[in-house]
Nucleic acid binder design. Structure first.
Length: 413
RNA sequence: GGAGGGGUGGCAGAGCGGUCGAAUGCGCCGGUCUUGAAAACCGGAGUCCGUUCACGCGGACCGCGGGUUCGAAUCCCGCCCCCUCCGCCA
């Protein structure tokens, strides 16, 4: 949600920023509705004031035995007019909220115009090779997944489960050491949580809905983590959380894309980083989250590149986004494994998350940021980059103390 | 699934038809006192719209919406949310 005051105060700047992502025209409708609302509200309130005065006069008149017919008649006329104006104001307000809710965040000036590779890190040891499905064999069981739940659902089995849990535990400990509180959040949430994080009304076609209970399955723990402090005044910022959860995505419109393996599935697990910070700190926090994502990839010995995502590709809530793309020998190219966004005050305003500035003063809207720590896509990258000539896989030694196997034997053919 | 209770300021919590934007306590901010702090005492502080150069002033807002009434935080109706107890399941 954009700041309505900012829109009123400097519409041209907001329009210019929105123009970068092609949403400038919608601002005019917002301004028009805001004008309507303010006009109707102002008039309704001044009539209300007159009503109150008349009410006092009627009471006084009645005490002195007067029937106050003229005043009562005047009161009736006022009531009708106030009601009508009130309805007009409410209609304008409702339309205004809807328009405002549909506007995306203002892009950061340093957000790229088009996807822009920031750097490539790590030597690519293997340009091409077997893909993760071939390497995993039945340890990624898509046949049973499809039979039980449908296509794009997988059973992870055997050593891959140990690998996932080691990855998760290793990442969690790293994050705890950096001040993140580990969290297992709800994955079913109310509409407000999705609205508040900007996924609704933006991406409803991606979201599973449990209609009997009016709940939604979340595609990322970001939704529940952001909502953790909804309607609160958070006293000590920064607050950092590391959420582990399964994630659910309908992947509507992705037909035919990335259909091999578990690169794009309806359900997967993820450790997500989420930060609440003061506005002046969000830029630095974004770099910090990116650095953590890179540190993880580096310690797992995965070659990757960092991409500053172009404004046209930003989600509604993001002002700026970096993706880390790991090299996948099975596909012979870089593919997205992590993503970190600075959503500035966009989610925090929708969710009403504020903080009290040091030394007191009015509560201000906080900034929020999110980033991927580890997901199933890390498993893909580990398999494909760790593969041996014989079809076995060498896994990073750092994960072994966390229960991961040091290597995987070749999948039987 | 059944039966109750409740949503009021940062928090707790009173108010149940006009004198209520709202008692009281805690917390917060400023001041007095103190070498400093604590305690004590004094004062301040919600959001939104309009108006003003400004101090300020006017108005609206007690979960959301509708109704009754000259007048609603208070009464009635609908919706949303929270809690407790019983049952059921883990």
């Amino acid at each position: 949600m954009l700041d309505l005051r900012l829109i009123r105060h400097d519409p041209d700047a907001v329009r210019a920023a929105l123009a970068r992502r092609g949403d400038a025209e919608r601002l005019d409708r917002v301004l028009e509705l805001d004008g309507e609302w303010r006009e109707a509200t102002t008039r309704a309130e001044s009539l209300r004031a007159e009503q109150k005065r008349a009410s006092g006069e009627i009471a006084a008149a009645k005490r002195s035995g007067d029937r106050a017919d003229a005043l009562l008649e005047r009161m009736g006329a006022l009531s009708r007019e106030v009601k009508e104006l009130g309805e007009r104001a409410r209609a304008a307000d409702e339309a205004l909220r809807a328009e405002l809710a549909a506007l995306p965040n203002l892009p950061d000036p340093t957000a790229a115009a088009e996807d822009e590779v920031v750097r490539e890190v790590g030597a690519i040891r293997l340009r091409e090779g077997r893909d993760h499905l071939e390497l995993a064999g039945e340890r990624i069981d898509l046949e049973h997944g499809a039979r039980v739940a449908g296509s794009r659902f997988a059973y992870l089995r055997g050593e891959l489960v140990l690998l996932e849990f080691a990855l998760v535990r290793w990442a969690l400990e790293k994050l705890v050491a950096r001040g993140f509180e580990p969290v297992v959040p709800p994955v079913l949430v109310r509409e407000e949580a999705l609205f508040g994080t900007g996924f609704l009304p933006d991406t409803e076609q991606q979201i599973y809905r449990v209609s009997d209970d009016g709940l939604y399955l979340t595609g990322t723990s970001e939704v529940a983590l952001a909502s953790l402090h909804a309607d609160e005044i958070v006293d000590a910022l920064p607050r950092r959380y590391a959420g582990f959860s399964s994630c659910f995505r309908r992947e509507a419109g992705a037909a035919g894309r990335d259909t091999r393996g578990i690169f794009r599935v309806h359900q997967f697990d993820k450790v997500e980083m989420f930060s609440f910070v003061e506005p002046s700190a969000s830029e630095a926090e974004h770099e910090r989250l990116l650095a953590l994502e890179e540190e993880i990839l580096q310690e797992l010995d995965l070659p990757y590149r960092v991409v500053n995502i172009g404004v046209a590709e930003l989600g509604a809530s993001a002002a700026k986004k970096y993706d880390c793309e790991a090299w996948l020998p099975g596909q012979g190219r870089y593919r997205e494994v992590t993503s970190t966004s600075n959503t500035t005050d966009f989610q925090a305003r929708r969710l009403n998350i504020r903080f009290r500035p040091a030394g007191g003063g009015r509560p201000q809207v906080a900034h929020t940021l999110n980033g991927t720590a580890v997901t199933w896509r890390h498993i893909i990258a580990l398999l494909e980059n760790g593969q041996r000539e014989d079809g076995g896989v060498e896994l990073p030694a750092v994960l072994v103390p966390y229960g991961a196997p040091a290597s995987l034997p070749p999948a039987p053919r």
